[in-house]
Design a protein around this nucleic acid. Sequence first.
DNA 1: GTCATCATGTAAGCCGTTACATGATTGC
DNA 2: GCAATCATGTAACGGCTTACATGATGAC
Lengths: 213, 213
Amino acid sequence: MSIDLAILGVLRDADLHGYELRKRISELTGRAAAVSFGSLYPALARLERAEAVKAVEPAAVELRSIPLTGSLSGEASVFRSRRREPPGRSGRARKVYGITEHGRQLLADLLDDPADDERSFALKVAFCGELSPARRLELFERRRSVLAGLLAGARARRRRPDEHPDPYLRSLRDHDTAAIEHDIAWLDRLIADERAALQQPHPPATPAQEDHR
Amino acid sequence: MSIDLAILGVLRDADLHGYELRKRISELTGRAAAVSFGSLYPALARLERAEAVKAVEPAAVELRSIPLTGSLSGEASVFRSRRREPPGRSGRARKVYGITEHGRQLLADLLDDPADDERSFALKVAFCGELSPARRLELFERRRSVLAGLLAGARARRRRPDEHPDPYLRSLRDHDTAAIEHDIAWLDRLIADERAALQQPHPPATPAQEDHR
DNA sequence: GTCATCATGTAAGCCGTTACATGATTGC
DNA sequence: GCAATCATGTAACGGCTTACATGATGAC
């Protein structure tokens, strides 16, 4: 359930109510993301029943926003949005959710799950700061091998030039092949960076996320 | 229903039975396509009820394979697969479908439908040889404007560097932005070719190719 | 005073998948 | 005679969307 991944991943950084949560999820990437309320709210209810998230006192948002090290401006925007409201009342029974310890574990499990399609892989990358470098490397390499398989198929098809004389289909396939190659090149960069980070335990660019727990 | 588009588009070029049809659909592009039997067979039944396709005599396959101008080798492979079988019997009650006149009209309508997601757009490109140059141009430009909107959003998000310090999310977004730009560049080539073709009524029929490596 | 936005939720339904049932043909 | 492949279908279920219902707040 890729929506759980999105919810838990975003909630990991800040306590949020559904409406705001949806905006954050939509902004994760340009193409993929975007969930509707019709799936978000039931999913939140389900995760609450499973005790992966729980409703928190809105007041707790301010309390939590100060001590956290990461995502400062994200917390600040929640703060801003609350500032406008009178102390006693807010919109319609706004329900702010926070991730639980069990939710964190579930997020870790979801990130570890080797099955990933286009969409869930993107989400996993967005949240993979959570993972150990070794797990991250596995994630990237698993995806790379899937794409390598697709690329092999795409190239094989293109090597039979007679079979599809339609120039538009040809152009589509050429573009598709190039897009896969582009994705693989990106993954190769991520993999190389990860390998480099494994060599020297304290790399300059990506140490920030590792300190919580 | 994007599966209808795929079925009709492939059936336009050759009469086929379900099993073979599925293979052809899967081979259209490297990433998108691929339908399961569980959706293919019911869809074929539905299209047959709607008289967009009809079961044809397997013997008609050979008859039809000669006079058609396009997709010669595609027809030939059907011929090959039938050659192996004894005259009276084949696998289990194999049902060969052909497109009807009404089916062709439906295909044209589906190609014209302005709503397109990632998947259906790819299918439309694969089959857009069917369309008039002006309609093709509309198709490409409609898609281009959608991608331009996504790109604007993606760039705006990237222009707020403070908001998401996570390096993996950053990398994901950068890659996503680049992929959208790549798609737009491809569309621009298709559009330019189409415009050129509109100028001189008898073009050499070679739309944009990636020509990478 | 009404419109846009914020906010939460439910219900119906679409589109597709996996898993299962069935069976013929081919090659070993 | 057994496995792999070809071939067609059904059933159950899953996940997500649209459309709807409801209502508060702020801006103009």
